[in-house]
Design a binder for these strands. Structure first.
Lengths: 135, 135, 135, 135
DNA sequence: GTGGTCTAGACCACG
DNA sequence: GTGGTCTAGACCACG
């Protein structure tokens, strides 16, 4: 499981970690029962304070996605894949909703938004497989 | 100029005010030279701390969209319509970019995002002119 | 709202704060819409680090019991009284269940447990109103 | 001596092991001079880290309940039955005291607690001899 | 080794 | 003024 955080994002680091763990599990990168990297390892890998990672893990535990195996670390729960699939959808949906609210308030139409999406998508990451896709 | 503020939104209130003033000017609801409501009036109308309105106005002044008329209040500048048209675009584009970033991190494709947009758009506000639109 | 924490308890301080806020709301000491003491005030009153109080508030917020009023502080939600009544019951029930599990594993009977309760109850606090009560 | 450990309990595993050995001896399931299962055997039987079992045995040794027989393993001491009878009582009493503290903090009365006990006792384990008992 | 709690204190956004 | 995030680092229980 390879994570990345952007220190200068407006999104808190611990929340970025939460999302990325959710995405990794939803994508099947980590399976139920597997241990995620330890707080210490992950904090070194991400160049982030251990407390920040611990906070992300705590949230994931309360969400039923991780469970602590005493003395071993944090493991992916049996329900995690299902929970993460749903959560992934909701995270993205929330951001889309925000964008649409702004677009509507600005007086744009649905086609306007679609145009913006097609305009911005290719500019995102270096290579996003299906970025230039269809439509 | 009629503004609305969502107290429970994750978007800061002052930023909501800024955006709505920008949108109102870009839409031609308020014209160059017209006065906007006073900090006091607007804060009462929106049930919001006067400091919050003041901060929004300050930001609009720094952006060259509003200018203070001594003894009268804040007025829409001559350049405001042009500035607001551009800014409106950037505000929306910024939110769209956020949504795309989340979508990409979640492993979605461009078509997935378009689907989400079509899914969410009709659910927005009660009345959104072209909400049931085309495509 | 007057809270007390026991620094030497095995129960984490932040959890003690959570429970006591829940109990105070369930008891009607604080009502929906009221602000609870600020993180800073409470941390001074309890002689505890502000972070510890903040963590308790965070939990209460995620539980839907408190909500942050931006710039003002944390307020008791409309649903809090109902939530707290239920939660209070579950907190106590959990402790009772623990005790019964131990009692059963030790081979005690229900009457044995009742006897223990009557034996221990009066020894609790200095004065507990109905402590010497009935039965 | 048949022990059971609940991996998801909030009570540390080593403490569960200590309690169950104490209860078994107090109940006369194992007698003075008898050997208890080896750390290795017990850890395999309970699916638990050997260190955890070792720690439990260490504690039981310090309490004078077990003593090591060089080359043979750990044996129940002569004083164990008496010690365990007392300790069993204190273990249960401690849990009861915890429950009462929570109940008192929640504003419950002694009758309330008795009611909770009668409510929860039958729900405990499948077979608890006198669970449906009297009162 | 693992995570959990807590302190101390900085810095920030918001109002 | 308010809460939110983050760092740094100590200490502890558990395994």
């Amino acid at each position: 499981m390879r994570l990345r955080v952007l220190a200068d994002s407006t999104i808190p680091i611990y929340e970025q970690i939460v999302s990325q763990v959710v995405f990794a599990i939803a994508a099947g990168d980590v399976s139920s029962g597997e241990l995620v990297p330890s707080v210490r390892d992950l904090s070194q890998q991400l160049l982030v304070n251990p407390n920040t990672v611990a906070r992300a893990f705590q949230e994931l535990e309360r969400a039923g996605i991780l469970e602590s195996r005493r003395g071993l670390g944090m493991a992916v729960t049996a329900e995690a894949p299902k929970l993460c699939a749903g959560r992934r959808k909701e995270i993205v949906r929330g951001h889309v909703r925000d964008a649409l609210r702004a677009a509507a308030a600005a007086g744009l139409s649905a086609p306007d938004v679609h145009e913006l999406v097609d305009d911005e998508w290719p500019r995102l990451a270096p290579r996003n497989g299906r970025a230039e896709s269809s439509r």
